[in-house]
Amino acid sequence: MTFQNELIKQLKSGADRGLQAIQSASKNLSYSELLVEANKVTTFLLNRGMENQSNRSKPS
Rank of each mutant, 00 (worst) to 15 (best):
M1Q: 06
T2A: 08
T2L: 14
T2E: 10
N5H: 12
N5L: 15
E6K: 15
L7R: 10
L7Y: 09
L7E: 05
S13E: 13
S13A: 13
S13T: 13
G14Q: 02
G14A: 02
G14M: 02
A15Y: 05
D16V: 00
R17S: 10
G18C: 04
G18S: 07
L19V: 04
L19D: 06
Q20S: 07
Q20F: 02
A21T: 00
Q23G: 02
S24H: 07
S24I: 12
S24A: 10
S26A: 11
S26K: 15
K27R: 15
K27G: 00
K27N: 09
N28V: 07
N28Q: 06
L29S: 03
L29Q: 05
S30H: 03
S32Q: 06
E33C: 06
E33W: 04
E33T: 13
L34N: 02
L35P: 04
V36T: 13
A38E: 03
A38L: 07
N39L: 10
K40Q: 13
K40H: 12
T43A: 03
F44D: 13
F44L: 11
F44Q: 09
L45N: 02
L45P: 03
R48D: 08
E51R: 15
E51A: 11
E51N: 08
Q53R: 12
N55Y: 09
N55M: 11
R56Q: 12
R56N: 08
S57Y: 05
K58F: 12
P59F: 02
S60R: 12
